[in-house]
Amino acid sequence: MLGYLLKRLIQMILVLWVVSVIVFLMMSFTGDPVFMVVPIDATDSEIAQARRLLGLDQSLPVQYWKFLSSIVQGDFGRSYVFRQPAMTLILERLPATVEMVLVAMGLAVLVAIPLGVYAGANPNGRLSRTIMAGSLLGISLPGFWVGMVLIYLFAVHWGIFPSSGRGDTGEIFGLRISLLTLDGWHHIALPAITLSLGTMAILLRMTRAGMMEVSRQDFMKFARAKGVPRKDVLYGHGLKNALIPVVTIFGLQLGDLIAFATITETIFSWPGMGKLLIDSIYRADRPVIVVYLMLVALIFVVINFIVDLVYTLIDPRISLK
């Protein structure tokens, strides 16, 4: 177990290093950030000085080496635009994104699993066909469109939910969390629903496919022959056997939504990381983008690790090696 953890840790560091190289190289080919910093009428000497101040006058390897060594020391660089540590900027906005994504994922699971189990156990029923048709809609409708329709219906037309912003937040451990206030829940509802639909549809289809596969297995019939009620056969015996691919997709979707909830955040003016990323890309704010992408890589690596641990909880035949 300890050896396994160590191996995963080394793997994780390796992934992060590779990501840092790729991101750094990519950024150095996309525009000169100096012009974002200096006034429009700056003289050549002012530009040269700004370049020196930002450390952009040195060769790429030297720049990368400085970047890497300061990261190792816990300094992730400062935003060119905000003049604040890039990490602070991102971490300030992280809770808003994470809580929206968690609500969205929770909603997706709550809806997708029961419907998926039902559709998998009764593949020819009329209700199952309706569910599957609905899931196709969920996959194919673009998030920005759903978001706008929800805003139009629930915010503009009926006025039940607010159209934008985060509302009141409560504070816990120095983090500002919407979920601690009723107003926060009120604000999070529409963006979370928008964000959840795609994942909901994918999880539903995975669950259904798994259940259809499992339903053919002998042990399902044996469980029924023991007198186990149908519901317990499906949820107690079947679902767990169908869960491995569902958990895999869940992990990937979770990382994906945390990293790239950009569109939903933009539509609902949700003050999360995604909006910061878009703004930073517009302004060629290199440190913020680099740190952001490395953080995203870290989140994916950690989620995948957790998913692997969950596998072993589900299936005793899978062991950590």
């Binding site: 002998d218 022959a225 007198g227 009620p229 056997n241």
Partner: peptide, 26 residues
């Protein structure tokens, strides 16, 4: 179905052909 459920496993039980697949692996 409810009546049958009480009979299955209690009054009439079954042994399947393939023991490799008739037990739940999890």
């Amino acid at each position: 179905e409810e009546r049958l459920r009480h009979i299955r496993g209690r009054h009439i039980s079954m042994v399947f052909q393939d023991p490799m697949t008739s037990l739940n692996p999890l």
